Simulated assay, not measured.
Amino acid sequence: MPAPEALVITDPVLRACLDDGPPDIGSLWELCMLFEFDREAVADGIAAWLGDPAGQRVLDCACGSGFPALQLVRRGYDVTCTDGSELMLRHFRRNAKDAGLAVEPSLLLWSELPRRHAGEFDVVINRGGGNYKYAGAWEQEKLPDRGAMAEAIGQWVRCVRPGGRFYVDIASDSDAGGADSWETEHPPMLVGEHRVELTERIAVDRARGVRSWESRLVVDGTAHEFRRLSHSITSEELVQILRDCGLVDIRLTEVAGEHYDIYTAIRP
């Protein structure tokens, strides 16, 4: 049987990512975002929620490789970018340079944020399908206590000024129809000179509240395997954490371009 025809991808972010050496978890993240989101549409949706950029200070507290922070900067927003992974920030710096944006992110663990930025921001954003579920676990195969999620969110909330807004997301509870595991085989791609194939498998142990994300990324015929463990969390649990942080006006908010569930709130 002939190999399936590959999608031709002209995205300069992905090409630079794959030209930069052997793929890592940041490369995988970039490729997953390609299939899941239209970056510009998501940034437009977030900008519509944010409103006029004049006078607003925004913190992206888990900026990763730069989406959507760099898109928001290009739209005129004053965005401070932090992340606890130097590997992800290496991708961020390359993407910022390629976009012609003079944005320098800070390497900060979530626990360090309040000491640096307590009460500073009009808006704090944590976007990425519930990054908090990786609290204390992104770089290792051992999960901390589930309380780490609430602790991380509480640290971000402390960076919101009184009266400011908080934006956080979660993968929809209806994803994959409530199945305990599912596999996605993405269409093969041609990114510049690179042929790329990607398969993802998600498994959720609901009794233990544990989620695993396993990926097989084949670039130019060489396979690379990735695995990340995280907590599994429901929207009801997330809303309760936001209440416990003292936030008010907690609501499920429609944001154009997103397929995550977005919750927004105000720090009184």
Rank of each mutant, 00 (worst) to 15 (best):
E193N: 08
E214C: 08
L198M: 11
S172F: 00
R228C: 08
T234L: 06
D249R: 13
L252Q: 15
V204S: 06
D205I: 07
G177L: 09
Q240L: 06
E183K: 13
I233F: 04
P188K: 05
D220S: 04
M189C: 13
G257P: 10
E254L: 06
E236T: 12
Q240V: 13
D249S: 14
L190K: 10
R211D: 04
L229E: 06
H224Q: 07
E214K: 11
H224R: 01
T222V: 15
H224D: 07
E254M: 04
D205R: 04
G178M: 03
H186V: 01
V168T: 09
V168R: 00
E193I: 06
H186K: 14
V204Q: 07
R227Q: 03
L238N: 11
V210Q: 05
E236A: 15
L238I: 07
T222A: 14
R227D: 02
V210Y: 02
H231E: 05
D173H: 02
D244Y: 01
L217K: 08
V204P: 05
R208M: 03
A171R: 15
T222H: 09
V204I: 15
G257I: 01
D175W: 14
G221N: 09
S174M: 02
H186G: 05
E225Q: 12
Q240I: 09
A223R: 03
G257Y: 01
E254H: 09
L238K: 11
D244M: 02
V168K: 00
R208F: 08
R208L: 04
R243Y: 00
S215I: 07
A203M: 10
L247F: 02
L252P: 15
E254D: 15
S212H: 03
Q240W: 12
E185A: 10
W213Y: 13
R227T: 07
L229N: 06
I233P: 11
V210K: 10
A171I: 02
P187W: 08
D180A: 13
W213I: 09
E185N: 06
F226M: 01
W213L: 10
E237K: 03
E214N: 10
P187S: 03
H231K: 12
L190A: 04
D205L: 05
R206N: 00
W182N: 04
W182Q: 01
S212D: 11
T234Q: 02
E254N: 11
E197A: 06
S172W: 05
F226Y: 09
V219Q: 08
L252N: 14
A179E: 14
G178L: 09
G177W: 14
R195D: 11
Y167M: 07
E254R: 06
D173R: 04
D173P: 14
E193K: 08
G178S: 10
R206W: 06
I170K: 03
H194Y: 12
I233M: 12
D169K: 08
T222E: 01
H186R: 15
E200A: 00
Q240E: 15
E185P: 04
A223P: 04
V204T: 15
D180T: 11
I241E: 04
A223S: 10
P187G: 02
E236P: 10
A256Q: 01
F166P: 00
G246W: 07
H186L: 02
V168N: 00
